[in-house]
Each structure stands twice: as C-alpha cells, then as structure tokens.
Design a protein around this nucleic acid. Structure first.
Length: 738
RNA sequence: GGGCGGCUAGCUCAGUUGGUUAGAGCGCUUCAUUUACACUGAAGAGGUCACAGGUUCGAAUCCUGUGCCGCCCACCA
C-alpha cells in the first residue's frame, strides 16, 4: 500500500473532487443509504427541509452559516444510522425577484413590465430564474451540503402551485380566507399591498402641527400629516374630557384651507386626553385606527391620497401633488390664515416597506385576508391542547403547538417572542399586486371588472374559488398573486408531496429540525406552524434552531453598500470550505450573532492543515499488523480519554450544541491527539522495537480514524480526503458513528 | 411605552443544571527548529467575570436594583 501522502493539502482541488465522489455514491439519498445497509431501522428518521434561498440570489455568508449548521446535523444523524433526509429547494421570492428582473430589463431595454405585458414579463422572469438557479445550487454544493438533490423543489413549480391552490381552497372553504375592503398597508414604490410584518419602522424627525380647521371651528387638533386632514370626517375626543363633552355628537361644516369638510364630533375611549390637544382628527381612509373608529361610528369615507402617494382633491393647487408638497402648501395657508397654533419637532416612527424602502401609505383596498381569530375545528388533530372536532382558531393552534411542547425553540427565549407576536397578530393580508408569484385561485364573472383589486368598493360577492378554473371560460382570474410567505408556509409538507398522502409525507413529516435565522421567526416559522396546523393538524417540525446573524469584525451587519460583505465562496477558494464552516460554527451559540473576520477563517484553515499533517505522520509510520497489539498503560489511557471525549461531543450534538461540540473536537484533535499522543509515541518509531512500533502505530491509527469520524460533520472534506488514504474502499460520509 | 439580549484576558467570544487555582482562538513575551506540520512546538504574561446589594458552606452562574450598548415589539394621532 501507498504510505505517502502529498505534503500539502490542496483544499480547493480536493473539495471539488470529493463532492463529486459523494454525489456519485448516491448516499445523500436516504433510500440509497437504507438499500446499502447504512441506515439502521431502530435509529429513526431525521429530516430537515432547507430554507429555500432566493433563486435569483447568490450565496452570502448567512447562507453559508445556515448550510454549515444543517450539514453538521445531517451528517451526524446519517453517521448515527438514522434515515436522514435533507431536502433542497429554492424560493421564487415574489417581489424581490420581480423588482430585480424589472430593473435589469429597464437598464437593458428601457422598458417596464407594463410595456412588456404580464405574459411576456413572466416569461422573462422565469428565464432569469432558471439561469440563476444553477448559480445558487452550485454554491450550495461548494459548501459541502450533503443534501438530497433528487428531491429538489421550487416554491413556484407545478407541484408547489398545486399545493398552494389546494391550501387556499381549503382555507377558504373553512371560512378562514375572506375578501374585504379596508385600510391596508400600501407601498407606493412597490405598487402593492404588504402585510403588517413587512413594515419596517424608521425613526425620523417630524413636525407636529397644532391648528384649527377653520376660524369657526371651536378647538384645535394636532397632527404630523396635515395633508391627510383633507379626508377628515370626524374629530374624536375622550368621553371623559370635560373640555369637549359639550361638542360630542355635534356636526360642523368647515372650510379647511379651501376644502369643505363635514366634521362630526365623536367620543372614543382610546383618545389620550394628555396627547396633543386631546382632540384627534379622524381620517378613515388613511389610518388604520381611524378606519376602525369610522366603522364603529358609521362615518363616511373620503379618500384623498392615491396609489402614487399623491393628493386627490378638487383644489387645483393641491391635486396631483406629492403628500409632502401638499403638506407645505396646507401649512402655508394655515399660517397665513392665522390658524396654525403650534409647530414642534418630534421624533416619530415612520412605516416603510421592507423590500422597497417606500413610505407606507394606509389606503382603503379590496384584498384577501386570512382570519386568525375565526373559529373552526380540526377533523384529526395531533396537536396537544387542540382536540379534534372542538372549536379552535389559527392563533390558538399556533400557541398550542409550542405550549404543548411539540415544538421546542432553541434558544428558548424566542418562545416568548413567538407568543408575543401571536397575541398581537391581526388578520394577515395575503394578496399582492405583483405579477410574479402564485396567482390567487379565484375567478370573477366578466361583468365584475370593478371587483378586482383596483376596485374601490366591495360589490356583490359573486366569485368562484377553486383549484381548477371554472367551467365558464369567460370568467376572469384575480390578477393578484399571493404573499410569498403563503407558499413558504407550506414548505415543510409541500416539498414532501402534500396534498397527496405520499410515502415521503408519512415518513418525514413533521420534520425533525427547522433551522433558520431568528430574523424570520414571524415571517416564516410562525406561518409554517399556522399552515401545518390547519392543513395537516400537526406541527411542521419538532425543533427550531435559530442561528444568529453574521456580522463583520466590528459587529456591523454585512451589506453590499457598506462594502464589508465577506463572500463565503471567495473565502472557501482561499482557505477551504471546511475552514469557512468551522469559523461560522465555533463560538456561535444559537440565537447569537457571529462576528466573522478573515483572521478567524485563516485560523481554521490551519486546522485543516494540522489534520492533514497529523495523518501524514501516521501514514509515514505505517506498519502491517497481523493482530491487535498490546498497549501500555498510558496508551490505554489515551483510548479511554478518547471515549470520554467522544461521549461529550456526542451529547453536545444530540442537544444541538454544535458550537460546543465543534470546539471540543477541535481542541481534542489539535492539543491532545497531535500535541500529546503523537509526541508521546514518536520515539517508538525512531528507536523502538518492532512490537513497540506496532503498538504505537495501532494506537495512532485508531485514534486518528476515530477522530476523523467526530470531525467529519464539521470539516467533511479534509476528513474524507484523509480517510480515503487509509480506507480507499470506504466513505467516511456513511461510516458508523458508534 | 412594553419586552429581550449583551457587558468575562489587549481583541473576538465559550463557560450546559451554582462546586476545587475562571477557559479558548487571535494578539503579545521568551525559547526551540534541517526528520508530520512555521498554516509549527514548548513555556509564559494578562481577568476585583459592568456596578451595588442579597440568597448560599460556596455565585461569572440564582434573586433585587443601577448603569451603559444592542435588538425586537407597540395604531400616541
């Protein structure tokens, strides 16, 4: 046998070669592992569905961290003999992808999506998505992900689309999906509605104006948005406020800077006596709370801002103006008329759209919603605390899934965050006015044009909801698409064949672990619990492992604009994917952010070299062993010491404490095996007897190969590269852990 | 306005249920060096574990309060 190993370990060449070797073996696929006897029946099932990266994106360091964590879990489970599935996929990421492609087309051809038309535009997006799909999947391979490519899914492929339509239909039939006209969050930049969770608050300085509508109005009101006051139909005061009691119920006709308003004085407990003037101008069309007050008090609605955040008015100087410009005009007029009482600077939270950064404009719109408080019952509930046939709600279901202990969130503190979100949850607006995504499976009769999303008024509820189009081909499908998180919510089971009751679904669902960043606990984690709870009556996963955000060495978020983004692929080329993986695992407790610097990665690259060189030394001294040689006392102790270390590492891995397991195995290999065990036995190879040489070699080879198993989940490439030198016919990938 | 997290060696962070002289990596100091590895080895310096109380035989770890730093949530118009 060859007892030489190349003096230098070339990570890049080896990593590419070894990934191919793994792929070729077919052992990323659980059925193949079972067929070849690597899976033990009694070890059970371990399944993870990959949080799908955006098809049109590229791999960033956060993805690399996610892949490292999941791959460690998966490799450990596979070596433990579990039937192990890691299922890959990509996300169509609706609005993100659409705007990306739009801007590319605009730059190249100077046309927008409306110029191209819906059909043509979608063709372009699909083409682009197909093209960039390979980029992201190749990058996933580069990190060493031992994922079952034969099951790859896409959130917008045919099977997933069928699942989405089925889910919509079932929820609609249960009365959980409804259509309503109300104030929603409109993103003027993205030209679509967004959900509450897609709002990002930004603190800004603003002017808080106190003024009277007109000289003949009895008191002043205060606002930061005077332009919306064109749409006021009431003033609300606290019923206990003596200053205003006398006015409650009265109506005033005022001339507000040239616009006639009918203002009714209403009482509402929620009005803060201390704040502003204690009187609140009610703008039903452009404020969520005001809308609610209007509903209670039967107030008329007056829309004064359009979809482009411009004023709608009879006043020629105001109409068509941007809201901020109109604000200035109005303030000027109030000041001139002597109606402006006070102007003060305050800081306020302004709502912006997460994806586009546009300032959110509350507008009344006809949209589709999921009712989170409506009662329904599950036919066959497997959720603790939710009985079959008993009334429950989506909110209750989401709470029970965690409260009943069927889902464990790690770190535990995020359970509180999760509950808090559920308790504050309002109905989820799921329709979007974008083209790229799952089209809403609802059709309207041809005469109902005005019913569609642009429509202002709810009309006759004549429409058809179904997985397949209606018989009557003249009916028109709703032009809107679904929130991307609607399809993502189905991900753990739509990827396993649902709505079909497939073998995969029976075997792998609920999945063992959902591993993702803590920043999408609401967007995604909670929505999966909701969907799985309602559609399957069970939890989507048993464990949630939330990794932190990867930051730069100064603790800043990595971003293109800051220029501090570290490219995991560049790093992998330079130092090896093994080193990148380790640097993202060690010291990264779940839920905690990781600070990454190139120095750190370099340190772990040195570790790969160490593994290679230690192995090289062992290989150099290879002797043939006819039988197991006798070991001396200290050698025996080394074996025991290894067993103890292995036990600790195994326990850490079983408890998902990857950062502790990683550190321990790193430390053991370098500072015990290499620094102590090898050094202690070196002398035997130089001056020892044949028997001593045999014992020393036996010990070193055993501890080396056993260590490689412990190391393999963390640094799969270099360990496999070494292992093949010692056991060319075997694959460490499917070696037995125990 | 609520809630959560952090504050441990010069820097980045571990420290699982409270238990002996508090750990790692990087950095620093000194030494070693033609035989696995300089992407190295050995030895070492460096910490009143944010602060103030309390519980305990014993606290970085549990409790209370304070101070910074960060994050999340919330319809003060």
């Amino acid at each position: 046998m060859d007892t030489e190993m190349e003096p230098k370990y070339d990570s890049k060449a080896n990593e590419e070669r070894i990934y191919e070797k793994w792929l070729h073996s077919g052992y990323f696929n659980p059925e193949k592992c079972e067929a070849d006897g690597h899976t033990k029946k009694e070890a059970g099932v371990f399944s993870i569905v990959l949080p799908p990266p955006n098809v049109t994106g590229t791999l960033h360091i956060g993805h690399a961290a996610m892949l490292a964590v999941e791959d460690i879990m998966v490799r450990f489970a596979r070596m433990k003999g579990s039937k192990t599935l890691w299922l890959p996929g990509t996300d169509h990421a609706a609005i993100a992808t659409q705007s990306k492609v739009e801007s590319i087309i605009y730059k190249k051809e100077g046309v927008n999506r409306h110029d191209l038309g819906r059909e043509e535009f979608l063709k372009r997006v699909d083409a682009y998505a197909k093209e960039s799909h390979d980029t992201i999947t190749n990058q996933i391979r580069r990190m060493g992900a031992s994922i079952d490519w034969s099951r790859e899914a896409f959130t917008l492929d045919e099977k997933r689309n069928f699942a989405v339509k089925t889910a919509f239909k079932q929820m609609y039939d249960a009365g959980l999906i409804y259509r309503d006209f109300k104030v929603v969050n409109w993103d003027p930049k993205g030209q679509t509605v967004i959900s509450d969770d897609e709002i990002v608050y930004e603190e800004r300085k603003a002017k808080f104006y106190t003024f009277k509508y007109s000289a003949d109005f009895p008191f002043a009101i205060a606002t930061t948005r005077p332009e919306t006051k064109l749409g006021d139909t009431a003033v609300a005061v606290n019923p206990n406020d003596d200053r205003f009691k006398q006015y409650i119920g009265k109506e005033f006709e005022v001339n507000f800077v040239g616009t006639k308003l009918n203002i009714k004085i209403i009482a509402d407990e929620n009005v803060d006596i201390e704040f502003g003037t204690g009187a609140l101008g009610v703008t039903p069309a452009h404020s969520q709370i005001d809308w609610d007050m209007a509903q209670k008090n039967n107030l008329p609605l007056k829309q004064v801002i359009n979809e482009y955040a411009r004023i709608i008015s009879d006043d020629p100087e105001l109409t068509g103006k941007k809201t901020i410009e109109a604000r200035e005009v109005i303030i000027d007029r109030l000041r001139t008329a002597g109606l402006l009482v006070k102007e003060e600077e305050i800081t306020q939270n302004i709502s912006t759209a997460e994806r586009t950064g546009g300032i959110v404009e509350p507008l009344p719109k006809l949209q589709w919603f999921i009712d989170v408080n409506k009662e329904f019952s599950l036919v066959n509930s497997k959720i603790n605390g939710v009985a079959s046939g008993e009334p429950t709600t989506l909110k209750k279901l989401m709470r029970a899934s965690v409260e009943g202990g069927q889902i464990k969130i790690n770190p535990e503190r995020f359970e509180k965050v999760y509950y808090h979100w559920i308790d504050n949850l309002r109905d989820w607006c799921i329709s979007r006015q974008i083209w790229y995504g799952h089209r809403i499976p609802v059709w309207y009769p041809p005469e109902a044009d005005s019913l569609q999303s642009g429509g202002q008024e709810p009309s006759a509820d004549k429409f058809y909801v179904g997985v397949n189009p209606p018989e009557d081909k003249t009916w028109i499908q709703d032009p809107d698409t679904l929130d991307t998180w609607f399809s993502s919510g189905l991900w753990t089971f739509s990827t396993l064949g649902w709505p079909e009751n497939s073998e995969d679904l029976k075997t792998y669902h609920p999945t063992t672990v959902l591993e993702t960043g803590y920043d999408i606990i609401f967007f995604w984690v909670a929505r999966m619990v909701l969907m799985s709870g309602f559609l399957l009556g069970e939890v989507p996963f048993k464990n949630v492992y939330l990794h932190g955000l990867v930051r730069d060495e100064k603790g800043r978020k990595m971003s293109k604009s800051l220029g501090n983004a570290i490219d995991p692929l560049e790093l992998s080329d330079k130092y090896g994917a093994d080193a990148v993986r380790l640097s993202l695992i060690i010291g990264a407790a779940p839920g905690n952010d990781v600070k990454l610097s190139e120095d750190r990665v370099r340190g772990y690259r040195n570790f790969s070299t160490k593994i290679w060189n230690a192995a090289r030394f062992v290989m150099m001294n290879k002797v043939e062993l006819a039988e197991t040689p006798k070991l001396n006392t200290s050698q025996k102790q080394r074996i025991e010491e290894f067993s103890a270390t292995k036990k600790e590492i195994t326990e850490h891995l079983e408890k998902f404490e990857l950062h502790l397991a990683g550190e321990k195995v790193y430390h053991y290999f370098w500072h015990t095996f290499a620094d102590k065990v090898i050094e202690e036995n070196k002398e035997y190879f130089k001056t020892g007897t044949t028997i001593e040489k045999q014992s020393a070699y036996y010990l070193l080879e055993k501890l080396l190969l056993d260590s490689l198993k412990l190391l393999h989940p963390f640094v799969p490439f270099v360990t496999e590269a070494v292992y093949e030198k010692f056991s060319p016919e075997k694959l460490l990938l499917v070696e037995n852990w125990d």
